[in-house]
Design a protein around this nucleic acid. Structure first.
Length: 421
RNA sequence: GGAGACGUCGCAUAGUCCGGUCGAGUGCACCACCCUGCUAAGGUGGAGUCCCCUUAAUGGGGACCGAGGGUUCAAAUCCCUCCGUCUCCGCCA
């Protein structure tokens, strides 16, 4: 949710943001109007309520013989209060609805436009070239006995898979390497619940436009999370945090579930796009003025991981229209996937400024003792998808795969993954 | 899954049976000051959150006793639903 004060005092900031996102600018004026109506309704109700409260005290103190007449009067007052109360509630709900539809104002510098309008901030490493015909990760996974797609489909349907043998170990190695980096940077590891209540799902903003991406269990009214970000954001909901010692950083590990409803026919081969995968996610709670610095820090950690995996990648500044409701800025890191001849997203890190925290009621205390919403940020540190880029990038002509040096300690010193035979 | 108990302002509790004098007492912790003087204690005062109006600072009002409804002129207190916690029993990886 956006800052209502910003809406009142600097609506142009929000208008510009909406425009850059290709979202409704008119919504801003609707919200300002709804805000005015809401405040008028509240004032009216509260006046009547104050009157009723005062009257109630005289009723309580009145002698018995006068009570009857006073109560009759009070009944009329009560009826009016009830009406005004309802009106105020309605006006608040109307305001919440309009204001809730406005996306987080973007950070200055975010490129305007849609999916194609990203700006490449930097690239690292050269796309790998081969003097043989490279195999794609699905084929390599099969040769190595690392990925069993056929059996995944047999057991659970399309877009499911088994990680087997060295494939399973490779994923755990990636996660552990990420966790070690996170620990060194002051992150607290969390293994999070993957089933959450509707309020938490809504609070983190995942029940909006992309609600059909989410698995839902009607028998228990619970949602399966597509990222541990949901649980990590909910972790401190309704709390006042002490951030004097710096950012509160968490590294959440969880399995992630995505319906991929809108992705029919896209990335059908291999495990690039699947219904279930594992992810190590960074999540930071910081003072609002530190949010952009923390954002840079998170993307820095991601780059260290990419470099440790010896992948060629680029960092992009995602355009406003492709940010989603909560993010004010998003950096994606895309790794080169040789058989696709393209950079594919391996990580994403979002600065949600105070937008998410406002909705989840996560605050901190300022020096004057007032409370104020914190900023939240999140970003990927490792996921199953990385296996795609690692296998394809480091493959050799015989189908074996060289293990990046930094990853070897996590695989018992293994230097090369060999085909089964 | 069955039976019972419970959910009050940071923590622990009083208040709920018999609705108004309860936005709410006490202890601990916290903050300020005073006293005292040393690895103490005592005294006085102050503290919550959210919202609305107002202001230069300020002041006024409303809401909040797990959440949401209901009854009533009036609800922490009565009724309903939900959520959660604890104890016992059952079941289970």
């Amino acid at each position: 949710m956006i800052d209502p004060q910003l809406l009142r005092e600097q609506p142009d900031v929000i208008r510009r943001s909406q425009e850059a996102r290709g979202a409704s600018v008119g919504l801003v004026d609707d919200a300002i109007e709804a805000d005015a109506r809401r405040r008028a309704a509240i004032t009216e109700f509260e006046k009547a309520r104050a009157e009723q409260n005062a009257f109630g005290k005289t009723v309580a103190k009145a002698p018995k013989d006068e009570k009857q007449a006073l109560v009759a009067q009070a009944q009329q007052l009560a009826a009016r209060v009830k009406e005004l109360s309802q009106a105020a509630t309605d006006a608040e709900a109307a305001f919440d609805q309009v204001v809730g539809a406005i996306a987080n104002p973007i950070v200055d510098g975010v490129p305007a436009g849609g999916e194609e309008d990203f700006v490449t901030l930097r690239t690292h490493g050269e796309p790998k070239s081969f003097d043989f015909e490279p195999r794609d990760h699905a084929e390599l996974g099969e040769l190595l006995g690392a990925i069993d797609i056929a059996r995944g489909v047999k057991v659970s349907g399309s877009r499911f898979y088994f990680l087997k043998g060295i494939g399973a170990r490779l994923e755990l190695a990636l996660m552990n390497m990420g966790l070690d980096l996170a620990l060194a940077e002051g992150f607290t590891p969390l293994i999070t619940p993957t089933l959450v209540r509707p309020e938490v799902m809504a609070g983190t903003g995942f029940l909006g436009a992309h609600a059909d991406e989410i698995y839902y269990l009607p028998a228990d009214d619970l949602y399966l999370t597509g990222t541990s970000e949901v649980a990590l954001a909910g972790f401190h909901s309704d709390e006042i945090l002490d951030l004097e010692g710096g950012p509160l950083r968490y590294a959440g590990w969880s399995t992630c579930y995505r319906r991929e409803a809108g992705a029919a026919g896209k990335d059908n081969r291999g495990i690039l796009r699947v219904h279930q995968f594992n992810k190590l996610e960074m999540f930071s709670y910081v003072l609002p003025e530190q949010a952009e610095a923390e954002h840079e820090a998170l993307v820095g950690f991601q780059e260290r991981m990419m470099q440790a995996c010896e992948l060629a990648y680029r960092v992009i500044d995602v355009a406003a229209g492709d940010l989603g409701q909560s993010a004010a800025r998003k950096f994606d890191i895309e790794a080169w996937v040789p058989t696709q001849g393209a950079y594919r997203e391996l990580t994403s890190t979002s600065n949600c400024t105070t937008f998410q925290a406002r909705r989840l009621d996560i605050r901190t205390r300022t020096e004057s003792g007032k409370t104020t919403p914190v900023a939240t940020l999140n970003g990927t540190l490792a996921t199953t998808r990385w296996i795609v880029a690692i296998l394809e990038t480091h493959q050799q002509a015989d189908g074996s795969v060289v293990v990046p040096a930094a990853l070897r300690p996590y695989l018992g010193g293994l230097e090369v993954l060999e085909p089964l035979s």
